[in-house]
């Protein structure tokens, strides 16, 4: 039986960081509470202190400058998906967020909570990883920035230290000659969680070849699968089905899929390649959206 936990509701970031410095090892932070509550009720979490970030003022902004879209950690997913700044500067992210869970979950789940959860089938990390998003982190003494790809360490595991808190996510804005998409496969019902999600972005050069490509896959790997080497090899190639298939095959070969009730490791590996090809075709057409496979 779990001992009763102490509840904390700090009103400032400084108070929160002080609590984490004192109790970090035995504390859990709760923001929207959607992931926390499921694990807590199931007895899968142990903590003596529950620290609610909901009383904090701020950290909810969604704003853009010339280079990046910056999202406060406590911004609700639903607010981010509807924010003009997101829709204008990162339409694929805005659309992908609309496919996350359901309205009720998105109404309370926060962007900071989403990345800190490090769920291997969560949709936003695919798009954020492909866009080279950076996680901003604070502790009592200062802070650091970590690329999402370094922040997400393993299946439900991040590089965050117990006394640290995610304050936001910075998402570089792609130039206008990039097109992208997020393709989400539900292997079971329309109410299911993601089996495989593919974020794909493609930049056309003036000569018709590819000037750049980004592909990140969730659900097929403990953390979003991104292969920068493979992406680089793609630059200068014609955006043909053959080239897409070759890139997709490299991803499928590199994946280390986790098996669950939505598909075996073998299934995930097999469907990954055709889904990447499909996503790249959409990216090449510049659909700038998110759709179900």
């Amino acid at each position: 039986m779990r001992a009763p936990a102490a509840m904390h509701r700090p009103e400032t970031l400084e108070e929160l960081l002080a609590i984490l410095r004192e109790h970090g090892d035995s504390a859990k932070i709760v923001a929207g509470g959607t992931a926390f509550t499921i694990l807590w009720k199931a007895g899968l979490l142990q903590a003596e202190h529950i620290v609610s970030a909901t009383g904090l003022h701020g950290l909810t902004d969604v704003r853009a400058d010339d280079e990046a879209l910056t999202v406060g950690a406590l911004a609700r997913v639903r607010d981010v998906e509807r924010a003009e700044a997101t829709r204008r500067n990162s339409p694929v992210l805005a659309s992908a967020l609309r496919l996350v869970a359901n309205v009720r979950v998105r109404n309370v789940a926060t962007m900071g909570g989403n990345v800190a959860e490090a769920d291997y089938t969560s949709d936003p990390p695919a798009v954020l990883s492909a866009l080279d998003a950076v996680v901003t982190i604070r502790d009592k003494d200062g802070g650091r920035d970590l690329p999402l790809r370094e922040f997400l360490v393993d299946y439900f595991e991040t590089a965050l230290r117990p006394d640290e808190f995610v304050t936001g996510v910075r998402i570089p804005i792609l130039a206008a000659d990039w097109g992208g998409t997020y393709l989400k496969l539900l292997s079971r019902s329309a109410e299911d969680r993601t089996c495989i999600g593919v974020a794909a972005f493609l930049q056309h050069a003036t000569d018709g070849t590819c000037a750049g490509v980004r592909v990140a896959v969730v659900g097929g790997n403990p953390v979003p699968l991104r292969l920068p080497e493979v992406e680089r090899q793609f630059v200068g190639q014609e955006p043909s089905m053959e080239a897409f298939a070759a890139l997709a095959a490299e991803y499928a070969a590199a994946a280390d899929p986790v098996a669950d009730n939505r598909g075996t490791a073998s299934y995930r590996r097999r469907v990954m390649a055709p889904l990447i090809v499909r996503a790249l075709r959409r990216a090449a057409r510049g659909t700038n959206d998110a759709v179900f496979a």
Partner: peptide, 12 residues
């Protein structure tokens, strides 16, 4: 806003 009461920690 619509929320799932089952997922909302009461003290928040």
């Amino acid at each position: 806003r619509a929320v799932s009461a089952c997922l909302a920690p009461a003290f928040t």
